[in-house]
Computed example of a mutant assay.
Amino acid sequence: MSHRDEYSQWPFLTEEEFELACAFLDSRYTKAKLGPVRKGFKLRSRRTATTGATSIEILRLLNVSSDDGDLSELLDQLWDRRADGASASDMEVDMPNEDQDNEVLLSNTDTPPQYSMYAHQPYVVYEIHLHPTYRVPTLWFTLHDLPMAEPTFDLNSVFRYLVPDEHKAQLRAAGVTGGISAAPHPITDLPSFFIHPCQTKEAMEPFDCEAKDYLMVWLGLVGGCVGLWVPRELAET
């Protein structure tokens, strides 16, 4: 049985279809029996007040604490702080050989550095937004609270902290288009990284998944290249 009749134009999504896909993923996370996994992997659906647009936010610590209690408390406080709209840290800019993104790479040098009370715990925030032109999900991500002297908005930091060795050569060869790109964040307008969605259509076309599984399939194709793996328990829900 084909499930493609669930979509207006497979594999593209309308805003309503993307919102439904986000609701399915959020519900899957809520109901999954993740156990200890939930302490290090936070996911929720969010809606932007100004535009009404829906997105998915995922938070993951880069250095896992040996103390489960400390880890759980840390993730919860980081999660709550993001929900309150507080900025985790200023982003420094350092992306050599990316001249076409110069406007994106400018930072506010008049603002003094801010240091998080959790600066010793680097973490990454992934966000899934519907691309307004390509009409497919797009994975955005930002690094936060890296060790002193390591810029967060830096392509080398991304490759060092997020990109597995088996993906590094392919992503570096892809360049800006088709690989890791930089642009103002779709909501905050702050400099951010994202996986360019130009190849998403071809990647998704061979699949015939229900709407409730769309983002799970998509994450399996896109997330791993920047260190975002869906927990097995979530996939089994």
Rank of each mutant, 00 (worst) to 15 (best):
R4Y: 00
R4T: 14
E6H: 13
W10N: 07
P11E: 04
F12S: 01
F12A: 03
L13S: 06
T14N: 02
E16L: 11
F18A: 11
A21M: 10
A21W: 11
F24I: 02
Y29I: 08
A32I: 14
A32K: 07
L34E: 08
V37C: 07
R38V: 12
F41M: 11
R44Q: 12
R44P: 02
R46H: 08
T48H: 12
T50E: 14
T50H: 14
T54H: 04
I56Y: 09
I56Q: 14
R60V: 15
D67G: 03
D68A: 15
G69A: 11
G69I: 12
D70T: 04
E73L: 13
L75E: 02
L75T: 09
D80G: 07
R82D: 12
G85W: 02
A88V: 13
M91L: 09
E92N: 01
D94Y: 02
D94I: 00
M95I: 03
E98L: 04
Q100W: 07
E103F: 04
V104L: 00
V104I: 05
S107W: 11
T109G: 05
T111E: 12
Y115S: 15
Y115K: 12
M117T: 14
A119P: 09
P122S: 04
V125M: 05
E127Q: 06
H131Q: 07
P132F: 01
P132N: 10
T133C: 01
R135L: 14
W140P: 02
W140H: 07
W140M: 12
E150R: 03
T152R: 01
L155H: 06
S157T: 08
Y161R: 13
P164Y: 07
H167A: 13
Q170R: 11
L171R: 02
A173R: 02
A174R: 11
G178L: 00
G179K: 00
A182E: 01
P186G: 12
T188V: 15
P191Q: 01
P191F: 02
F194I: 05
F194T: 01
P197V: 01
A203K: 03
C209M: 13
A211L: 13
K212T: 10
D213I: 04
D213L: 09
D213M: 11
Y214F: 11
M216L: 15
V226Y: 08
V226Q: 03
W229G: 05
P231W: 09
R232F: 03
E233P: 04
E236T: 14
T237F: 06
